[in-house]
Amino acid sequence: MRFDWRRRIALVTGLTLCGVVAAQAQENVAAAEEEKPYHITDDGTVDWPTFSGFRRYNSVCHTCHGPDGVGSTFAPALTESLKRLSYEQFFEIVVNGKQEVNTAVQKKMPAFGLDPNVMCYLDDIYAYLKARSDGAVGRGRPEKHADKPPEAAEAENACMGG
């Protein structure tokens, strides 16, 4: 199966225009609330997506949001933000960006909608940040993680284009 993140962006960015899509999105929110996006076993082993999210977060997002989502001098702590933001809001912000720029404040969240290094792993990043936000995963690298399942490798190759 091919995960087409480009089409998915189109869906999300169309949210405000299209009632049907919005309704669908709401269903997803409800589903997301029921089921945690991460799985951690009793011995502390995190599932692959959460671990993958840790890696991707700490290679792209940490340059502004600080290590492990704890925030920096200029970008918010996402461990706090995710207590407030829904999956859809999170998705929308990462795809389209967000800004508050004036003489004193220069807050600019870039749009990552066209960056495969982010878009191919956005669910993973979300899972990781949600786990951090819920206190299920601590700071630093998760000590134990599940192996990369073949489906993940396949999806990654398809999405990254090779």
Partner: peptide, 13 residues
């Protein structure tokens, strides 16, 4: 991707 971060490593300090 032009204009996007091109990092490819995760660090803890």
């Amino acid at each position: 991707t032009a204009g996007q971060p091109y990092v490819g490593a995760t660090l803890s300090m």
